[in-house]
Design a protein around this nucleic acid. Structure first.
Lengths: 152, 152
DNA sequence: GTCTGGGTTCACGTTGACGTAAGATGTAAG
DNA sequence: CTTACATCTTACGTCAACGTGAACCCAGAC
């Protein structure tokens, strides 16, 4: 189990993730995404986990509208949770684990309520649009039923 | 009716709208928001309608994630619809009115489907977050029930 | 009067999130 | 080994959406 898992170099990785190579390097530059490893010659290598993270970053960016610094706060928190998961049984310290869990819960709840608020507003907006569409439709129907003044 | 409607100068207007004065001037510069009028001395004057538009712009920007050019496409379209509404009975030309209505419908539907798609994705995201919160909660509950190793 | 306290118009500065080009180096194929 | 292409680092360029002066104007309080 746990095979070498087919690492991708930056070109392939970028293509699969739907971003540019520059973007991957930039994410690394600002501490958002560290490649899984490097080849002997120094080429970055990305695995499935990194691709998933890029996906997550893009969602937070485009969907939620966070900037990359806010996103870094979120994902580094998640990294620590991930570390917790890894060292789950060989527990560092139970109290520390407890703290991390509490922190994870808190941060996730904060993000959740933020997202929920946004959902509420955007749904309202969507419904307003739907209403307007209906109004336009009924205006058009009205027009079709009305005695259209024949040209000249 | 239709009182003078208490025009605001840029300072007040910006404060009420929750943006900077620079932002209002910038919106004007790129043709997004024309002040309702000017004082004799040349000061911009904004009314309730303009404040509402700023509100709308910010929603499209922050909520939907449109850039100001896309927003301009939307609001100028709406301006034309507004003009249609104004000249509703003293119809310019019925066929022109028809065209405008069709266009308005089309554009609004496009925006609506875009927003709807975004709502779907963001709801999914929100639900994922909710799930994770549940997992954290149950982990904490588990921990509380487990035989916590008493210190020393 | 003049003295603030908003305004005005340029016009250059800034910041985030990359794009892009240069020159050196790695990697896979023949 | 050479050739060809992918990647590397370094560093300057770009674009949207404003921020931030500088220098001038104008209305009301004193």
């Amino acid at each position: 189990m746990t095979e070498p898992a087919a690492m991708l170099r930056i070109g392939e990785a970028a293509q699969r993730a739907g971003v540019s190579e520059r973007t991957l390097r930039y994410y690394e530059e600002i501490g958002l995404l560290v490649p899984a490893g490097h080849s002997t010659g120094g080429c970055r290598e990305y695995g499935a986990e990194e691709l998933a993270r890029v996906q997550q970053i893009r969602e937070l960016q485009e969907l939620i509208g966070l900037n990359l610094e806010e996103i870094r706060n979120v994902v580094t928190r998640e990294d620590r949770i991930g570390a917790l998961r890894d060292a789950y049984r060989r527990t560092e310290s139970p109290s520390e684990r407890h703290e991390l869990l509490l922190e994870a819960l808190e941060v996730t709840e904060a993000l959740h309520s933020r997202v929920a608020a946004k959902v509420a507003r955007i749904e309202e907006f969507r419904d307003d649009l739907a209403e307007r569409i209906e109004r336009y439709r009924s205006l058009l129907a009205e027009e079709a039923a009305a005695p259209a003044p024949s040209p000249a």
